[in-house]
């Protein structure tokens, strides 16, 4: 017993927090990657997460296979990301960082309204696949199988991403590009293609988060608006541009929200900003951030 609360209840709360954090991590990793490499603050990240959920809804209707949808939908959204980068972000290279921020903010409004035109204003529902429906007894609680699956997918994707960044040549260039883009260019590397790739990858991850969130939270046009705020908090707390920071901060925020919800539900909305304020006071560049990256 801690504070008169049975340990099993706390364990249940920690477990639910893991899922909340998992979705945030998938979002924040992409956001952080994009910012770290090209200092673009992508405000449309939430809208693309939402687009992922809608694309999954449609693909599920066409393919009748959740597993195929899980692979195809992030690819579709990632492709949209490539198009955005090539035709909207690239013309803004060399201008102030405010310009892509404004552009992606406007883009998020356009995407939300377009989705309403195409899929209607009323929200949609997606079911988890039969194999993942129901709950499993973890000893301290019955936990939905689908949510365990979300944690597993998140972990797999992160391991894959780590291998890609640490063990491949392209990953090496990306890491170098984050540190010193000028030097990398001087060495004759075409950073334009790397930026395109990273933007598509980050957006694809947002799409994947949307696909995974659909069966839990439903699919509706405003779903990205809420999560984008939490994602920015995660990226700021973790340190802008830092991958380990995004992962640690994502899980941390998920757990903090979950535990606060247990003890003081009304505080759950505010506490993430409180954490951000404290981190900014103590470590202005974030938990894992390096000072001066955005300058």
């Amino acid at each position: 017993m801690i504070l008169d609360v049975p340990l099993s209840a706390l364990a249940a709360q920690v477990f639910t927090g893991l899922v909340l954090g998992g979705i945030l991590v998938l979002m924040a990793v992409g956001l952080s990657l994009i910012f770290g490499l090209m200092t673009v603050v992508n405000f449309s990240h939430g809208a693309l997460y939402m687009l992922g959920a809608y694309v999954a809804f449609t693909l599920l209707g066409v393919t009748k296979s959740f597993w195929l949808t899980l692979i195809l939908a992030p690819l579709v959204v990632g492709t949209v990301g490539l198009i955005i980068q090539r035709f909207l972000i690239r013309p803004l290279y060399g201008r102030s960082p405010d310009d892509p921020l404004l552009l992606t903010f406007g883009l998020s409004l356009v995407l939300v309204e377009s989705v309403k035109v195409v899929w209607g204003k009323v929200g949609l529902t997606v079911d988890p696949p039969r194999d993942l429906a129901g709950a499993v007894n973890l000893g301290f609680m019955n936990f939905p199988v689908y949510r365990l699956f979300v944690v597993a997918v998140t972990a797999l994707v992160l391991v894959g991403l780590w291998l890609f960044l640490e063990k491949t040549n392209v990953g090496l260039v990306i890491r170098a590009g984050t540190r010193d883009p000028l030097m990398v260019r001087a060495l004759g590397v075409d950073l334009g293609r790397i930026w395109l790739l990273v933007f598509g990858l980050g957006i694809g991850l947002a799409g994947l988060a949307g696909v995974l969130a659909g069966p839990m939270r439903g699919v509706y046009a405003e779903m990205g608006v809420e999560i984008i705020i939490e994602c920015f908090v995660v990226v700021v707390v973790g340190g802008m541009g830092s991958l380990p920071g995004a992962i640690v901060a994502g899980l941390l925020i998920g757990e903090i929200v979950s535990l606060t919800t247990f003890f003081a539900p009304k505080m759950a909305e505010i506490v993430v900003f409180l954490v951000m304020a404290i981190v900014l006071l103590v470590r202005p560049s974030g938990l894992f951030g390096e000072a001066g990256l955005a300058e």
């Binding site: 249940a12 709360q13 639910t16 609680m141 939270r217 979950s258 247990f262």
Partner: peptide, 12 residues
């Protein structure tokens, strides 16, 4: 609509 953090407490 994310209720998961609320549900264990209600169940308890």
């Amino acid at each position: 609509p994310e209720f998961s953090a609320h549900l264990p407490k209600i169940q308890a």
